[in-house]
């Protein structure tokens, strides 16, 4: 949390934060929201508030009878040794949640054309999430325009019809938004991008080649 903090102007919409706190977001989106919260005090406060609301619901939910042995088996395990789980710290521009998925290692970039590189963090039916590296002046690879799409800037910035997105800013797009994000001059733009539609690169790779690229 410490260190320089640029002014974040594009935040996680409240409904997405509520869904994240409630555990209703698929993993690709949850990774982007967790990363944004890591960079953004406003959204951390909102996340805390949604947890408070969840706590109130937990207080009011009807209880269920427990097996008689449950309590004693918990108490029997209180002193059992535990292997501490690794804690992944932020590294460079990559927030802790991204470092966890990268298993603490730097991203392994694959070129996708035009100087653009990507590193797929996870890809499944429910959606995918990847890191993108976009040189200044290059377009962010064609977004799916087909479902929800979250893009969090980690380095540099990009601009599109809706405005400018700098470090920590989150762009939320869906099929109603027709936009062409382009990396601004300066440092290459690195972003974390999640979508619930299959990834597509209409402008860069012929459709037939897509299976080869796992996109």
């Amino acid at each position: 949390m410490r260190g320089k903090m640029t002014a974040i102007t594009h935040h996680t919409p409240d409904a997405l934060l509520a869904a994240y706190a409630a555990g209703s977001l698929p993993q690709p989106f949850a990774l982007v929201v967790a990363s944004h919260i890591s960079l953004c005090l406003d959204c951390r406060a909102a996340y805390d508030a949604h947890q408070a609301a969840g706590g109130v619901v937990l207080d009011t939910v009807a209880g269920e009878d427990l097996s008689e042995s449950l309590k004693s088996s918990v108490f029997d395990l209180l002193d059992a040794p535990v292997v501490p789980e690794p804690v992944f710290q932020r590294s460079g521009v990559y927030p802790g949640p991204v470092m966890e998925v990268l298993d603490g290692k730097p991203p392994r970039w694959k070129p996708v054309g035009g100087g653009v590189r990507q590193c797929i963090l996870s890809a499944a039916e429910a959606g995918s999430v990847r890191l993108l590296y976009i040189p200044p002046g290059q377009a962010v690879p064609d977004h799916s325009h087909n479902g929800l799409e979250l893009t969090l800037v980690l380095q540099g910035s990009f601009s599109d019809e809706t405005g400018r997105f700098g470090v920590g800013d989150l762009e939320v797009a869906d099929e109603h938004l027709d936009h062409t994000p382009v990396a601004d001059a300066g440092a290459p733009c690195i972003c974390l991008a999640a979508t619930d539609a299959p990834l597509r690169f209409r402008t860069l790779v012929p459709r037939l080649l897509q299976p080869l690229f796992r996109i």
Partner: peptide
């Protein structure tokens, strides 16, 4: 509210509520 925080609504449902 209960359904939302119990995880019984999808994120689309929360957004449209």
């Amino acid at each position: 509210i209960e359904k939302a925080y119990l995880g019984e609504l999808t994120h689309q449902e929360i957004s449209t509520q």
